[in-house]
Nucleic acid binder design. Structure first.
Lengths: 231, 231
DNA sequence: CGGCCCTTTGATTATATTCAACTCGAGTGG
DNA sequence: CCACTCGAGTTGAATATAATCAAAGGGCCG
């Protein structure tokens, strides 16, 4: 099977998209403050329970936020893309572990500096607040997925969400960087079930999987029908 | 079977507890502002998608926050107890439906007034912010439940969480007001599965169900072992 | 006391998990 | 440049878990 014909030849860089949009409402104070730092694949940016000494803004790559259980089960609460802020919780300790999925670049804001900025500049405070609200909203959306949807619906919703965040349209190749296990832990499924579901969706012609960690939405409308219409 | 001997004779009023604690850090401005209003069982306080014209503080009773899918599936995002604030999202419309589980009393704050208060008084703003953080944290906890736990673990965790919120200790009767369907929709299970799990836990002697919507934790330690140790 | 709704229980089925084998492909070193 | 190797992904068969369908029991309300 071949999708070279219809698929655009340049993969949509899932991990670099949205930076422009997010930067648009980024206060100048945050734009200039902070230090750039890099993380290798699977490297920990901060760990659950660690005292909060810094917050980060993602510049490139994908970050996974996750929690582990005592017996090793993992739940990924979400993926953060360029433009997103992580580690801005107001408690004393991080309540999630943040890990680089593959190579990641961030801007690091020291806690004290961010506190001062958000205290002095209403613009910064509002920006952090709106991020917090976005996180809450996305967690609630995620709850619907985990509580109400079947495997196919979960994967279909996830792919649509991914395509939307990447501003990808039908036919564009999305480089989502994520392996099957990451997707499984995000969706509350096993990696085998995710794999089978990809195969099933590809068989129906709704998507294509040209190469590892890449995906093409071939029929967004039908994919949407396969996902759960939330309202 | 009888638990009258060990169970305290007065049910712990799950729905009235915590008011004292929550009120402790309640800004005086919020304490005095607003109008009291009542809701009958199953009555809608506000609906998902409605324009936000007011926020509420629960005085008594239990409120469920939920979302429906197009085909009628329901996910309950959480239950709100006295002292909790609902409808404080910063978007233009409510993103949840809030319904009274049984009789509920609330204080209603008009949107414009709350906006003004939070703008003028840092104390009020911080209070709203801390509530928002609490909501986010509880949503993330909920994600672990829905993504990682088995039916028994979910019910056990839920009961422990309920007991903690009610400040109930082993042996006290907790009036949780919730029916099996509400618990099921919160935990992402069916009501039959919830019922069977209650039966199972009661059979093991971990809990007792003296009457409808009441529950007694008989062995909190073993119940905790049956729930998922989150870390 | 009667009716209704909530809850429990049972039997069967659907769905996803588990365990296992195999395939593919990307990256590596000869 | 090609062969090799290892990790990621796919596929299959058997199993476990919860959902579904159905019926009966019990408590709370009038």
């Amino acid at each position: 099977m071949s999708f070279v014909g219809t698929a655009s030849s340049q993969p949509v860089p899932f991990a670099v998209v949205r930076a422009a949009a997010a930067d648009a409402d980024m206060p100048a104070e945050l734009e200039t403050a902070g230090t750039v730092c890099n993380f290798a694949p699977a490297e920990t940016i901060f760990g659950e329970g660690d005292p909060i000494d810094a917050s980060y803004r993602v510049l490139s790559g994908v970050v996974r936020l996750c929690r582990l259980t005592a017996d090793g089960r993992r739940q990924i609460a979400g993926f953060r893309l360029p433009g997103d802020l992580i580690g801005i919780e107001w408690t004393g300790a991080y309540d999630m572990t943040a890990e680089a999925v593959r190579n990641v670049t961030c801007v690091r804001y020291s806690r004290s500096r961010l506190d001062r900025l958000s205290h002095e500049k209403a613009e910064v405070r509002d920006h952090l607040l709106s991020h917090l609200c976005r996180d809450l909203r996305s967690a609630q959306e995620h709850l619907m997925t985990l509580g109400c949807q079947s495997a196919i619906e979960r994967v279909a919703s996830f792919l649509l969400q991914t395509a939307r965040r990447a501003s990808a349209s039908d036919g564009s190749v999305i480089d989502m960087q994520l392996g099957r296990q990451d997707i499984a832990d995000y969706l509350g499924l096993t990696l085998e079930t995710v794999s089978r579901t990809f195969t099933e969706l590809a068989g129906r012609g709704l998507i294509a999987t040209p190469k590892r960690r890449h995906v093409v939405i071939r029929n967004g409308a039908r994919l949407k029908a396969a996902s759960l219409p939330l309202h």
